[in-house]
């Protein structure tokens, strides 16, 4: 068959048109299907986003109370080392002036400065600890929990340098001898890996709330789904003034403090 120049032009022109047409059709189709899925699946497919609100006033009610700390540390086999350098902790208290150095005036410091603030990992929206880990041993799950694979961590401690909240601890020595009674439902760690609060992911999987929130008699720790407008934590955050730790860093902490 002989193809003339005119034929050739016609065929290639048609081809081009066909390609352009198909692209346009596909774009329209995509947009409609997107809209359709938005409408139909919205109420069901909404992601869970776990978060926490800590009522500082309620938390100070009982002087020196450390029920939540004990509950967490015994549930998760957190070793207790006496020297500060090698300390491992998932939840602990720190003076207000160290936690919110900018959120005070010279006049309030006297009263507020030394009041204890409960600290845990913030399970950030955009966690720097996840980005720096060279082996993907720490990552944010779909539900917002930032977790660690103790069997993959190489112990480089880059995540400790990257976390702007000091939430992470390293096992400088074998933790097992420093655990009073081992909870067999949760793994113990080896020396040389990093660990931190895991929002009780193992309990969430069973439909339970975090151990710290459960143990608190004052109900100072409220845990729940930040995506659900009528969850208890959302209701609380709507009605009371709450702050996050250093929100200006853009990490998006999911732990709120009601002050």
């Amino acid at each position: 068959m002989k193809i003339t120049r005119k034929d050739f032009l016609r065929i290639s022109g048609l081809g081009l048109l066909a390609v352009a047409g198909r692209k346009a059709v596909r774009a329209v189709a995509e947009r409609t299907s997107e809209r359709a899925s938005e409408q139909t699946s919205a109420p069901f497919a909404k992601q869970v986003r776990w978060g926490m609100a800590i009522d500082l006033q309620k938390c100070r009610q009982k002087d020196g109370c450390d029920r939540c700390i004990k509950a967490c540390h015994s549930t998760h086999n957190v070793p207790q080392f006496s020297d500060r350098a090698h300390e491992v902790k998932w939840i602990w208290k720190e003076p207000f002036k160290n936690v919110f150095p900018a959120a005070q005036t010279g006049y309030t410091r006297e009263f507020f400065g030394n009041l204890p603030v409960l600290l845990v990992c913030n399970h950030c929206d955009d966690p720097p600890c996840q980005d720096v880990c060279p082996v993907k041993a720490t990552w944010k799950r779909e539900d917002g929990v930032v977790t660690i694979d103790f069997h993959r961590c190489i112990g480089c401690r880059y995540c400790m340098a990257a976390c702007p909240y000091g939430a992470r601890s390293f096992n400088w020595l074998d933790p097992r001898p420093a655990i009073a009674t081992v909870n067999l439902d949760f793994p113990t760690r080896t020396k040389g890996v990093v660990e931190k609060c895991n929002f009780c992911e193992e309990r969430l999987a069973k439909g339970l709330g975090p151990a710290c929130a459960e143990s608190c008699e004052e109900k100072a720790i409220v845990f729940g789904d930040l995506e659900k407008p009528d969850s208890e934590v959302r209701r609380l955050l709507r009605s009371r003034f709450a702050v996050q730790r250093q929100p200006e860093l853009g990490t998006g902490p999911a732990v709120y403090y009601i002050v």
């Binding site: 090698h86 300390e87 491992v88 601890s169 390293f170 096992n171 400088w172 020595l173 020396k191």
Partner: peptide
Amino acid sequence: GLAVTGLSRD
């Protein structure tokens, strides 16, 4: 473990 060094949590 790395406890033999002078490093610490901070």
